[in-house]
Amino acid sequence: MTPRDRIRYFFSSHRTGLSVCLLALFLLVYPAWVGNPYLLGISNLIAVYLIAVIGLNLFIGYAGQISLGHAAYLGLGAYGSALLTVHLGINPWLAMAATAVAVGLTAFLVAIPTLRLSGHYLAMATLGFNIVCYTVMMQWDRVTGGPSGLAGIPHLSLAGVAIDDETRFHYLAWGAAILVLTLGLNLARSSLGLALAAVAQNETAAASLGIQVHRAKIRIFVLSAVLASVAGSLFAHCYTFINPDSFTIFNSVELVTMVVIGGLGSIWGSLFGASLIILLPEFLHFFETFRDIIHGLIVVTVLILLPQGLVSGLKDLLRMRLLRKANNARN
């Protein structure tokens, strides 16, 4: 191997790790570069959503299932954190961890019966769970504050420093998002990721190769719910105020839109999807009024033209074109 080959080999075998490092480096200097709290606030929201979207993409994109109720887990995370800190005065970090564990258990119990379903039925079941959670948040006003929500949620703090401004929260939220991105990329490239993709494409064949289909689905569903819970907790501690309107079924559809734009099964695509959907209203001011219509249009258009999602779909098209070219050149 010549030194040049060695360098090329190093880059090709570590391209994922290097890309993550590059992104981390960019985010490290980003606050110094923009310095505008409003812009940082937007990018922080992207980070929080990204955590939930990566989890959901593993469930929808890799395992091939559907959940139209992931905002429920986001809401359970936010309310769990908020109730434990506001009513019981528990340390926010502890509250976040306890909530994540509790949401994981809840998701596990929900998953055992519902993941026996597939397609429309699974979509309906997850949607139903979201509506139940939303109704409880709205109606149980003595505890949850009802429609007016919960205020006075404490900020997280690290080594005595409260994470109470956009720059500090930037490092926390993006630190967590990069960690989740790395874990997601690892899982997707592992044998378990392959097993999940196999389950999505042919359950009978997957089972006959030794893959525990039901168990694989449950595990990834629980992981995605826990990630949504962590994102919800971060959301609550960042804004110190929550109300049920952030956790409706329309928010669930928004999460699915982010996954679909990014592409089913593309972890990097999730970053693109989450960014695009959160940034769009900043550019298009009429967007707010017609938000749900536009989200619906985006999902339908993308799924009709590129069933694998926007980014993955375009990537597949390009890959096929290159393969054909290489094949023609050989013949």
Partner: peptide
């Protein structure tokens, strides 16, 4: 590779 599931890593 999917055919090698019995030999692959199972730990989440």
């Amino acid at each position: 590779l999917a055919g090698l599931t019995p030999e692959a890593e199972q730990s989440f």
